[in-house]
Design a protein around this nucleic acid. Structure first.
Lengths: 342, 342
DNA sequence: GATAGAAATCGTAACGTTTCAATAAACTGC
DNA sequence: GCAGTTTATTGAAACGTTACGATTTCTATC
């Protein structure tokens, strides 16, 4: 294997130019040990003259830390995740960390592959929005790897999780519909192997029960999380008698699919059916009608997720975490896609 | 500085367990040198038994390559970039590279900081969608750093650029409006320091000239690229006499702002004014009316951008590139926001 | 001016790999 | 059976840092 030409200058060169030892250069860089200001100045001048930047690879090998965290998302083109990633990236940057981004395409094998790569690259920790049938939990626990589950959390995770209060916000969305007088409420519940969808359904159930409203089996559609799944489910719901007067949808892609189906059938919103979705973004406000949706604290999820990971990475053996599970509040943005029943 | 406990096992442990030297283990891993199948099998068994994964950090230090590329985007929450990044990530993954993601927030100083970090981390190359007043070009050329400019390309870049044919697609959008009989056409041209916006304006000018149509100064609004800028510009345009009958918009955020302003003033689209934008995404088709827009080959931009970078990284000194600049065709998706001139 | 103690500096041995020159082992052909 | 070749295997020297113990240089005190 051909060896790549490396950075022009090394610490040796700086040391020679400044007339000191490499130890002194290292001390100036890291501030680990006091250096007389005269020499420190000389060293700094030499570094600038050579445009010298310490080799982080060598440094990592020596210190055992890379100052890199991995982030694995199931689909970066799903508008939810870029905001989370942005939150991570910003918090990480402030703390001197860089972010290695991986996309699992909702595939457990790809996820596992990424996890192995990140492990081999010796990242200091991983933030993971896992996919269905994820084996991540076992793999990394076995390796004692600092990890935080974001958005989608395995039931077994004993610590290091951050997510929206999905039970609560599912109930919130349902209660909103109930308060508008709806009784025949349907839900596109998404993939019930994923915690957010499972929890939102639980919240929905809770709210319905509180209000003494029945949930018909045929009003509950679960399975996929893609646009086409939402479209299919919409078609299915429209064929029912009686039709639901309101539909709650468990994520933005299903939501879009549902809207597509309703539009094709020329079903008027909210006159004929009210719809409320999860995941808000700019376009929701400009849809016709504008869309009522649950807005998650995406950016904050990323930011605090990184902070949680930082605690885990910095923890001494046996030490307890200040908090093991972070639960974020969501906000219902009421717009014009939900209206009074009847 | 406390040293982090490292991976349980090293090549030494594998070698000892397999009863061979570390050189042999290395040979098995890299296939660099023939190893008798009996010993190779022993080594593989030992690796599996210890769940051993070679330390990529050590390997990088030795080989001088990290198999990591950096990607810097101005705003990952702008729906355009996740698709580009996905293209890069996928192509990179297939080639054994990982992706370090940085967000510059459209700020030249942040961009420069990221560039330095990536450089220090010894990534093998960088894909950059630069921001206004970027100093990246000089910095990295000085360092002879493999780099590809994506989407936004500095005029001076002698090679390693990939972008949409913005002049062509700008002209395409304008011609579409002209063909519909519009003569008073306005343009929200965005930030003219950025090549895509500059080029789209040039295309617009070209098409107008071909058709012998004048461009009024007050119909040309440039400056920002954010939603609010689009809104402001919309307000400004609506105050003019005569009003333009069609408006072309240089990116998706400006587009959204413009739509916001038109909606507030209850301007009917396309009856009173036709609008065409840049950057298509799923929601455009479901807007009311559905939005005519130029769709760029985002995913492909990422994928081919990475491939171009690969060529640059793998190039021997003095060798020529198979192609220095990649220009991608865009597609005009005609929907209902553009109609015949009144 | 000598001396103790503190402060600054340095040499060197790692960190976990790869690679190259050197050795050992196994084949050739005669 | 032996020189000559090929083929496997290994030991040891890097790669560019950090950090430890050892050493030198200061400063203050008597």
């Amino acid at each position: 294997m051909a060896i790549k030409p490396r950075a022009k200058y090394t610490m040796r060169d700086v040391a020679r130019l400044a007339g000191v030892s490499t130890s002194t250069v290292s001390a100036v860089i890291n501030g680990s040990v006091p250096v007389s200001s005269a020499r420190a100045e000389k060293v700094r001048a030499a570094m600038a003259a050579l445009d010298y930047h310490p080799d982080e690879v060598a440094r990592s090998l020596k210190t055992g830390r890379t100052n890199v965290v991995g982030v694995i998302v199931p689909d970066i083109t799903n508008a939810f995740y870029p905001e989370v990633v942005r939150g991570v990236e910003e918090a990480a940057g402030k703390a001197g960390y860089s972010v290695l981004l991986c996309d699992s395409s909702e595939d457990a094998r790809t996820e596992e592959k990424h996890l192995n790569t990140l492990f081999a690259r010796r990242v200091d920790g991983v933030l993971l929005a896992c996919c269905a049938h994820s084996t991540a939990y076992d793999t990394m626990v076995r390796r004692r790897f600092p990890m935080v589950f974001v958005d989608r959390v395995p039931a077994a995770a004993p610590e290091g999780t951050i997510a929206t209060d999905n039970v609560g916000s599912g109930a919130m969305a349902a209660r909103h519909l109930i308060a508008l007088g709806h009784e025949r409420i349907a839900m596109l519940a998404g993939n019930l192997e994923l915690s957010p969808h499972r929890d939102r359904l639980e919240g929905f159930r809770k709210a319905m029960q509180e209000a003494n409203l029945p949930i018909r089996d045929e009003y509950l559609i679960s399975g996929g999380v893609q646009v086409q799944d939402g479209d299919d489910a919409g078609v299915q719901l429209l064929a029912l008698h009686p039709r639901p007067t309101a539909i709650m949808v468990s994520n933005n892609q299903l939501f879009l699919g549902l809207l597509q189906a309703l539009e094709r059938r020329q079903v008027r919103i909210p006159e004929e059916v009210s719809v409320v979705g999860f995941d808000d973004h700019v376009w929701n406000a400009h849809f016709h009608p504008s869309l009522t949706a649950v807005a998650q604290a995406t950016f904050e999820m990323g930011r605090r997720g990184f902070e949680l990971l930082q605690h885990i990475m910095g923890r001494k053996p046996g030490e307890e975490l200040p908090e093991k599970h972070v639960r974020l509040e969501a906000e219902l943005r009421v717009r014009n896609s939900t209206g009074r029943a009847g």
